[in-house]
Design a protein around this nucleic acid. Structure first.
Length: 436
RNA sequence: UCCGGAGUAGCUCAGCGGUAGAGCGGGUGGCUGUUAACCACUAGGUCGGGGGUUCGAAUCCCUCCUCCGGAGCCA
């Protein structure tokens, strides 16, 4: 490899180098030619640029070097940055030197034409190099960073729960079972119970890690492995947790709008829709929601679960997320506290994203009374001895506490305007997708 | 698990009883300003597997497999 003489620059910084000589290190995205001139589009992971190679500048040898490169061959180029209004991005590189690093061993499977989703998912490891996927990954990164900044700035401590667990958190969902030195162990489907321990130790914490659901769900909203953020706050009640969720969402949306305009444009997401995500979010209780749904023609009765279509009907009434709260206790997990004014109801809430994107947050206040919680565990057919450590939180200085869980991939899908969560994570795990 | 839909060239698809097709991608050649460049030529197929009907099946029937969308369940 020839040592470059001009400084190595990333394309995201190219605007500061107009008129100067630079070295770019990247991959060939596409190329065109006309007689003794070559047009080479190079990407370096931070952007794309068209490089122009004329026989007058790079000679027959340079042209041959360009011609040897195929799509996604790696290459180091040197040249002069030139402002060019016709070029996407506003700049071109006038080539002086072309150094192939590795000529791809075969035809790159993903051509710059249309492909089906199944094919692209089979080639996910290569699909990630495309402009659109790069933009989504950057937005995902910024959402993660914003969430962490939000909690860190408010004095929360990151508290990592285990992934191997000995029992179900919520009894209902299906768990992935593994062999743990001869004993069955399950991949965590929620860090919440452990988060509650953290809240009692540290006051306010958040967990942030992968969770696993072995449900055979085949929808655009489901992954078997997904990332969840679960804050838990001691001495907090249901509406405190809802207000926290509201502040967090607004903080994250603001951050994406402030730092990822370019990426939103790349994926054709209209920022005006996100600008509307402002406090306060509407709050509608389950009982009222049922009435709204009946009037909209849904066949639903009090006590029924609110399904995907029903969620869309409700969220379509607003241009921002909406809280659904006070569900029938029977629909919710054993650890959820009941409403003292109406024990049929649970002190829980869901946050429904607009545009039919569905539930992105579920949360509420936890049952904090020892005897009541023991009874709930038994009612749900769970073994009390599996939860002794969890019950200890109610034995030693129990306090009201509340929290919520945010599904990261659903949030990314919503903010990016994607119809399916599979593009929001580098390597999605779904019922029929374990590879790559 | 249930209900729909789809499997034909590397990719996206057309063909739906009578010789296997197109566009893109690949290869070769041409062109000094191309923008998913263009022009010419070219290679490339067990029509998802198995069974059946028929003189003849990619096409009709049965069966299995795989994938996609939705329901249930959930974030």
């Amino acid at each position: 490899m020839v040592t470059p003489t001009a400084p190595h620059v990333y394309l995201q910084d190219i605007a500061g180098w107009d008129g100067k000589d630079v070295t770019l290190k990247g991959w060939l995205y596409n190329k065109r030619s006309s007689g003794k001139i070559r047009f080479v589009i190079v990407r370096d992971g931070t952007g794309l640029i068209q490089c122009v190679g004329s026989i007058n500048d790079i000679g027959d040898e340079g042209l041959a070097a360009v011609d040897s490169l195929t799509q996604e061959s790696s290459v180091i180029v040197e040249g002069t940055v030139k402002a060019e209004p016709r070029a996407p991005g506003g700049f071109e590189l006038v080539l002086k030197k072309v150094v192939p690093v590795h000529v791809a061993l075969g035809e790159f499977p993903i051509s710059p034409k249309e492909h089906g989703t199944a094919f692209l998912m089979d080639n996910r490891h290569l699909w990630l190099r495309s402009k659109r996927q790069v933009a989504i990954m950057r937005i995902r990164h910024s959402i993660v960073k914003a969430i962490r900044d939000f909690f860190d700035e408010r004095g929360f401590t990151l508290f990592d729960p285990p992934i191997f667990t000995n029992a179900a958190c919520e009894g209902t969902s299906t768990l992935f079972e593994t062999d743990y030195f001869g004993e069955p162990a399950y991949l965590s489907q929620s860090g919440q119970l452990y988060g509650e321990c953290g809240a009692m130790a540290l006051g306010k914490i958040y967990t942030f890690g992968p969770t696993f659901r072995a449900e055979k769900s085949k929808t655009r909203r489901h992954l078997t492995e997904f990332w969840m953020i679960e804050p838990e706050v001691a001495y907090a009640e249901m509406w405190d947790a809802a207000a926290l969720a509201e502040d967090m969402i607004c903080f994250v949306v603001r951050r994406v709008l402030d730092t990822r305009r370019e990426e939103l444009t790349a994926i054709e997401r209209d920022p005006a829709i996100l600008e509307k995500i402002q406090k306060p979010f509407p709050r509608i209780c389950y009982t009222d929601a049922i009435e709204v749904l009946k009037k909209s023609g849904h066949e639903i009765n009090w006590g029924d679960d609110i399904g995907g279509d029903e969620e869309t009907t409700i969220s379509n009434q607003y241009d921002r997320p909406v809280f659904l709260h006070h569900f029938p206790a029977d629909l919710k997990a054993f650890y959820m506290k009941r409403d003292p004014n109406d024990p049929k109801l649970a002190l829980g809430f869901d946050l429904l994203a607009p545009e039919g994107k569905g539930e992105v947050i579920g949360g509420g206040q936890r049952e904090d009374d020892y005897d009541t919680l023991v009874a709930r565990i038994q009612e749900h057919g769970l073994k009390v001895e599996d939860f002794e450590w969890f019950l200890d939180l109610r034995k030693y200085g129990t306090v009201p506490h509340a929290g919520f869980g945010l599904g990261l991939e659903r949030t990314v899908a919503w903010l990016c305007g994607l119809p399916h969560v599979r593009e929001t994570i580098p390597f999605p795990r779904m019922i029929s997708r374990l590879k790559p």
